[in-house]
Simulated scan of single mutants.
Amino acid sequence: MVILGLDPSLSCTGWGVIRAEGSRIAHIANGQIPTPAKAPMAQRLAALQAALGAVIAEYRPDRAAAEEVFVNKNPQSTLKLAQARGAVLAACGTAGLDVREHAARLVKKAVVGTGGADKTQVQAMLKVLLPGVKVAGTDAADALAVAIADAHLAPR
């Protein structure tokens, strides 16, 4: 089972692809999709959707997983996150992928063992779970964590 983990964001969406066979997981690829901050919103969303579509076409995942939406204190940030998630979900939908959503605390618990883990703890555990992996950045690390959590939490 090939799983695409996603950490949607308008500024930089992280993605990570793993193979899950039973309780074993293996890294396939990871990366980040930045969008230019000064570009018009429609262009940023189109670029995000197209770039993720290319990732999906290249790695051909069986399903995708993303963190559930959370509400920021800043309504403007929440709206931008929702728009980026829309572009990400549209790319997955266009490819016919089922997208499973997991709460951030559940992702952290599945990867680290505690839902209150911070980003450095998650990244340290990724090095244990995926030895030798070169992670493209923090957004890609979060996406790999989502994929790993999905492999452990979701039925096959």
Rank of each mutant, 00 (worst) to 15 (best):
D7Q: 07
L10Q: 04
C12E: 04
G16N: 03
V17H: 00
R19T: 15
E21M: 11
G22C: 10
R24G: 00
I33L: 14
I33Y: 00
K38W: 02
P40R: 11
M41G: 06
Q43T: 09
R44Y: 00
L48E: 02
G53W: 05
G53E: 00
V55Q: 05
V55A: 04
I56C: 08
D62G: 15
R63T: 12
E68F: 04
V71Y: 12
P75K: 08
P75A: 12
P75I: 11
Q76P: 02
K80T: 08
L81P: 11
G86A: 04
A87W: 03
A91R: 00
G93I: 07
T94Y: 08
G96Y: 07
L97M: 08
D98A: 15
A103W: 09
R105N: 09
K109T: 11
K109F: 04
A110E: 12
A110S: 15
V112K: 09
V122R: 10
V122G: 08
M125W: 06
K127F: 07
L129F: 11
L129A: 06
V135E: 01
A140Q: 03
A140D: 03
A141E: 04
A141K: 01
D142E: 13
A143D: 04
V146M: 11
V146Q: 02
A147C: 07
A147I: 09
I148A: 03
D150Y: 04
A151T: 12
R156Y: 12
